Computed example of a mutant assay.
Amino acid sequence: MTTLLCVLALTASLTAPTLAAAATDEEAAANATTDLDPELEAELGRAIDLGITYLRGQQADDGAWSDSVGVTALALRAQLESPQAMPGDDPMIEKGVAFILKHVNDDGSISETNHNRNYNTAVAMTTLAATGEPKYEAVIADAQRFLQGLQLDEADGYEPSHNYYGGIGYGGDERPDLSNLYMALEAMKATDLDPDDPLWDKALTFVTRSQNNSETNDIEVSVDDGGFAYMPNYSPHGEGRSYGGMTSAGLLSLLFAGVDKTDPRVQAAYDWIRANYTVETNPNATGKQGLFYYYNAFAKAMAAYGEPLVTDTDGVSHDWRRDLGKRLLALQDADGSWVNKDSSRWWEGDPNLVTSWSLIALNHIHGR
């Protein structure tokens, strides 16, 4: 599980984005509406069913997937949020939730390991909220307090002028990063943390400093293209390179924190996505590393942004739901799973994790 959260810390890359690859059918994209083509919608529904069937066959006797709270929570969320989700008791869901609850700790964290406590706790909170069960409210409230305690601020010796201020890391004493913070903010949004809670404003300090945008960033940036890096002026592959996974995570973080779509930070992030639009790769990342993390974050970010079409900087309109849906259909294996065949780095060689991410993306595409 040590490397699981590193999945969330997607690497940057030297590979240039390919806009033309995303426009496989410009005419269809130009005429797209908020509704998917019925034939494609049916295909996506079948793919979701097949993926869920795969996951159900991979659950261990103790209720876990990949012996991990994080992967288990994602697998459960993928099924709970599915448009094909059935009401009523489901023994498989109950077993998975029981595994999660077995790893609730006295400090409020939900994790089987100390290293990834933020990630595990965050995705477990989101999944417990997705059950709609009031009986988990106390566990969720304790988990919220745990994540609030992880945020670096004055109590930890960090003044607002410090680049780490407002960030959250893996869950120990290590440095913060945007990926960890985004997952925590998603959990707080899903569990209805008070929008006036100080956590949001503190988080925006770190998020804004992780954006390569000299117009809004109060620190000097090494790159100035509006996208997001892993942390202020740092990307895993050198300098402060912006890349697709983190830019989607950054855009989501801004929206989770209540920043308006007209805000220059949101517009700069969206313009980066427009300039680097593709579903063939994780744009501006090395090869296919972090590809499915990107698909998951991109689908959530586009759904939250609320526009069915993305018009790239060449003036070509793209129906992102159609494009990503067709891409995920093409990448699904016959057994219903997804896995990154080109790069197993950051746990993308684990089909339980990658299938869960792909299903969550498809749930957003399908209109959940």
Rank of each mutant, 00 (worst) to 15 (best):
Q84G: 14
V354T: 05
A47H: 10
N352L: 11
S111V: 05
D194G: 05
A184V: 11
P87Q: 00
G172Y: 07
V97D: 04
Q332P: 02
I219W: 08
P198Q: 12
A275K: 12
D312W: 05
Q267R: 14
A249D: 01
D173E: 12
D89A: 15
R175G: 12
E220C: 03
G63S: 10
A297L: 13
Q84A: 13
G240A: 07
W347M: 14
A60Y: 08
P83M: 03
A9G: 10
A20R: 12
D173R: 07
G238F: 02
I110V: 13
Y164P: 00
A22M: 08
E215L: 12
E27K: 11
V97K: 02
L178P: 11
A203R: 03
T313D: 12
Y158A: 06
N284T: 09
G244T: 03
E307F: 04
A129M: 13
D153P: 01
V221F: 06
A301T: 04
A23Y: 01
W272N: 05
S214R: 09
D263M: 06
T127P: 03
G315I: 01
D194I: 07
V7T: 14
F228K: 04
P87F: 04
N340W: 02
A85P: 02
P83C: 08
G290I: 09
I360H: 00
G149Q: 06
S82E: 01
G306D: 07
E307C: 03
R117P: 00
D350V: 08
L80G: 03
V221T: 15
K102N: 13
A301C: 07
P83Y: 06
T355I: 05
N163T: 12
E137H: 14
T191Y: 06
L55M: 06
Q144E: 11
